[in-house]
Amino acid sequence: MTVLIPVSGKLAERYGDKALFTLAISAFMLISVACGFAHNAPALIALRFIQGLAGALMAPVGRLIVLRSAAKHELVEAMALVILLAMIAPVIGPFLGGVIVTWLDWRWLFWVNAPLCLLALALISRFLPATAGDRSVRLDKTGSALTGLGFTCLVYGLVALGEVGHSPLQVGVAVAVGVLLIIGYRIHAGRVRAPVLSLSLLKLYSFRASLFSGSVFRIAVGGLPFLLPVTLQKGYGYSPLYAGMVVLIPAAGGLSMKFFSTRLLRKLGYRNGLALHGLLAGICLTLAGILHPQDAVIIYVLALFGFGWARPRARAPVARGMPLSSAP
């Protein structure tokens, strides 16, 4: 995903939103089916890498379509809905995964994507208008290579840092190479007219603040749908099914927040809303981490629900150039 996400926007401009979105979903579906037929771990890992390439085009291009389709006064609510769905899906995933591995075979974890992708393709064909691509759009190949390899080295180094079996030298080299490649892209981006990632966007205060604070928040909570069910299974003896059911609690909180998000955003403004809900999400997540789920069930459930309730609000989008203290 780190390889293709930076160039996804340029590819959409060159080949058209609908065409690229359709291609990404089709590739994701076919690779998912192939993953279910994998006969060993190396084959599955290779297929998952290709699946990640397709996934890298699905999410950014899908959001780009939303941004281009929604009117300016509808942008906040449209992006809130996109963020809500993106937040709920990985939370529901462990529950569905628990059901599948309990009653079916692990291969169905991948095969279940096929009907969902077919439904998405049918809806795209029926409702999404085609946009003509502009073949004159130039792709920054050097910048794409620098960002793709740089982010890949950084991700590999950071993942290896938390795993047993990797030497400090191996981790250090991967991170150092990643940093050098990103520095190289910074120099390259200042010399070309249309870099793959426009660093000039960082001059916008609202964009810069939402990007960096949102990244910290994402790092802090993005692993919850994976780490929580694993912790419940390995640490407390929960079955995959029951561990997945617990992870549904934040999803319920996030869904209930959808009915209040726009009104609270208009009443509190971005600065106060982001600060209060970010603080609430942090407190609830810390409380859930301290408590033993079997000793304080009610408080544990309320903490997870409160975290889910606050999370989509804490990731609310910031409009281009809008001061953080203002309301839409």
Rank of each mutant, 00 (worst) to 15 (best):
S8I: 00
L11D: 00
T22D: 06
F28I: 02
F28C: 06
A34P: 10
P42G: 09
A43E: 15
L44W: 00
L44M: 12
R48M: 10
A56T: 00
A56C: 11
V61K: 02
E77F: 12
M79C: 08
V82Y: 04
V82C: 06
V82W: 05
I83H: 02
I83F: 05
A89K: 08
P90I: 06
G98I: 07
V99N: 07
L104R: 14
W111D: 00
P115I: 10
L119Q: 10
A120Q: 05
L121E: 09
L123Y: 12
R126F: 13
L128P: 09
A132K: 14
A132E: 14
R138D: 13
G143M: 03
S144T: 14
A145W: 07
A160W: 07
H166E: 12
S167R: 09
Q170H: 14
G172V: 15
G178R: 02
G184M: 09
L202W: 09
A209N: 12
V216H: 03
A220F: 04
G222C: 01
Q233I: 15
K234R: 15
G237P: 11
Y238P: 02
S239D: 06
L241I: 14
A243W: 05
A243G: 11
A243R: 01
G244A: 08
G253I: 09
G254W: 05
K258E: 09
K267Y: 14
G269L: 03
N272H: 11
H277M: 14
A281Y: 04
A281G: 08
V301G: 07
G306A: 11
F307R: 01
G308H: 06
G308T: 10
W309D: 05
V318E: 02
V318G: 07
G321Y: 03
S325Q: 13
